[in-house]
């Protein structure tokens, strides 16, 4: 991979695009058709009440488990990005520690119904009220707003795949050992995205997508901030019942 000439040939670009799209498809937690079919399967009043009646720590634990599941699919996606496994373990971990939550948030927009502002969670669709007992309404509203704005871009699955790979392969992350190599991967992915948007006659999307990157970063900081608040109130819950992968990534 690192010996590819620059600019990459059209063949290389097309192969890279295909590979990223395949990786995205093979590591998506839910298929789009599946989500579409369940679009109007909403939680009942009683079910919503049951979520709202959970204690703060119960609901945090529940969401930490769900988030960790989503992250595991992102790890698989990362491993299938051409060149990722050629990076040193330290750099693979650095990119995932900083980028996996961002990719989860981008992917979440696939699970979002803008018509009624609900998200697919635990097998049905629910609004922000479902997450009331977490005690972080501002984070939930911000996450839902982000999903709304992503949906407004109406990305194809191919564009979504490319964007997710760009979010992950970010040479600006601190503590990278071989920044040059990450930079080369990123450069080729950017060429792929431009190529794809040009082909789709949607070049105006490029700027809109790059704008999303800073929103993603602020959402992730807010998540970490909320986790910090929670772990000060419930240190034992975090220590003893939170998924180990969640702790490795976010604490």
């Amino acid at each position: 991979y690192p010996y590819c000439p620059y600019p990459p040939s059209l063949l290389h670009i097309e192969e890279l695009c295909d590979s990223i799209v395949r990786s995205h498809r093979d590591t998506s937690q839910f298929r789009l058709e599946e989500l579409q079919a369940l679009r109007w399967k909403l939680f009942s009043r009683e079910e919503i009440h049951a979520y709202q009646s959970k204690s703060v720590d119960e609901m945090w634990q529940h969401c930490a488990v769900r988030l960790t599941e989503a992250v595991q699919y992102v790890v698989e996606f990362a491993k299938r990005i051409p060149g990722f496994r050629g990076l040193g373990q330290n750099d693979q971990i650095t990119l995932l520690k900083t980028g996996s939550m961002e990719v989860v948030l981008v992917r979440m927009s696939r699970c979002f119904n803008t018509e009624n502002s609900t998200v697919f969670f635990d097998g049905k669709f629910g609004s922000t009220e479902l997450f009331k007992s977490l005690g972080c309404g501002d984070l939930m509203v911000a996450v839902f707003d982000f999903a709304h704005s992503m949906c407004a871009l109406r990305l194809t699955e191919q564009q979504m795949a490319l964007f997710c790979s760009l979010v992950l392969i970010n040479p600006d992350r601190p503590c990278l050992e071989d920044r040059g190599r990450v930079h080369r991967m990123r450069r080729d992915l950017e060429v792929c995205l431009s190529h794809m948007l040009h082909r789709d006659n949607q070049e105006s999307l490029q700027h809109k997508l790059y704008q999303k990157v800073s929103v993603l970063q602020s959402l992730c900081s807010l998540h970490v901030e909320k986790l910090h608040w929670f772990s000060q109130r419930y240190p034992l819950t975090v220590h003893s019942v939170f998924p180990p992968l969640y702790k490795e990534l976010f604490t």
Binding site: V75, E76, K79, I93, K97, L245, E248
Partner: peptide, 16 residues
């Protein structure tokens, strides 16, 4: 390395 035990394991598993 110890700090990211699970991530290490996930990264080392071959893709299924």
């Amino acid at each position: 390395k110890e700090k990211h035990k699970i991530l290490h394991r996930l990264l080392q598993n071959s893709t299924s």
